[in-house]
Design a protein around this nucleic acid. Structure first.
Lengths: 143, 143
DNA sequence: TCCTTATTGAAAAATATTTTCAATAAGGAT
DNA sequence: ATCCTTATTGAAAATATTTTTCAATAAGGA
């Protein structure tokens, strides 16, 4: 099911600004802030308003089509979300962001925490960071 | 080692605004935004400036004395961090935030991801959310 | 108690985000 | 193809958030 269908199905429309935003995100290899998305859109000669970027990101995030990546100081990085459960891996150095399938088995940890705290857990946020292959190479050379 | 020592050791000072902020965070059972911290400080008759809240939170976060809790739409919730490795558990309903010791064993997952992606992983963000005991009770009654 | 300087608060500046509203254009219906 | 409904847009204004500047203050070591 493509974007067109996914949106129309819900009475939503695949508009020009939305296409432009998707296109920017598809080409990005890092997460992008609303401002960055807007700028790249303009650079690609897609004249859209910054407001639309905000609105679209909010909508797409709610629909699970886009996800937010959490940084140390800011959490305004957005990336396209492929369907299904997965998490992100971010490079400290170049900010490259990669998605990996959520094959993790946290169930025993979750059960443990539920017992310890009395909470019922139904959601988690998991994100890794480190050095991507390229930046590892660059670091090696410098040393 | 108390706050006084921790700061002085680094040439930093335990000032009135900083004490007020610590005190607010100690009394809180949810994470708090800079604005909320400021307001609660005023409510407690500790007249401090909002700027100091920002500056203190930034400093304390860098020092690992305070941590940021990541929500769905905002990530401006700060909590006191006890020393050592641990994560947070947040109630969807009342926002109660609890810390739990980082007993998780993610090493096999990390190794798996390192192999799959070529990244070197040295950091992770893990946060759970669900319903706290109190809110579970309230939900049960309503149903 | 003195002295150095980290820290503060107020104000201004810079950024970021949200709201409002008339105009537009997506896309289902005809 | 064309019409019609209405979701969506962009511009502007309103709000909110964060950072910077700088003179005054107060921590805390000597």
């Amino acid at each position: 099911m493509d974007w067109q269908e996914k949106l129309n199905q819900k009475g939503l429309r695949l508009t020009h600004p939305r296409r432009a935003i998707i296109s920017v995100l598809e080409r990005a290899d890092t997460s992008l802030s609303p401002q960055a998305i807007h700028q790249r859109s303009l650079d690609a000669n897609e004249e859209i308003g910054l407001v639309s970027v905000y609105r679209t990101l909010e909508l797409f995030t709610e629909l699970g089509l886009v996800r937010r990546v959490h940084g140390h100081s800011e959490c305004q990085g957005y990336v396209l979300a492929s369907p299904g459960h997965h998490h992100h891996l971010v490079c400290h150095s170049c900010d490259a962001t990669v998605e990996f399938s959520g094959v993790e088995d946290l169930s025993s940890l979750i059960t443990h925490i539920e017992e310890e705290t009395g909470f019922t857990i139904n959601e988690h946020l998991l994100q890794f960071s480190g050095l991507c292959p390229d930046c590892q190479r660059k670091t090696d050379i410098r040393d």
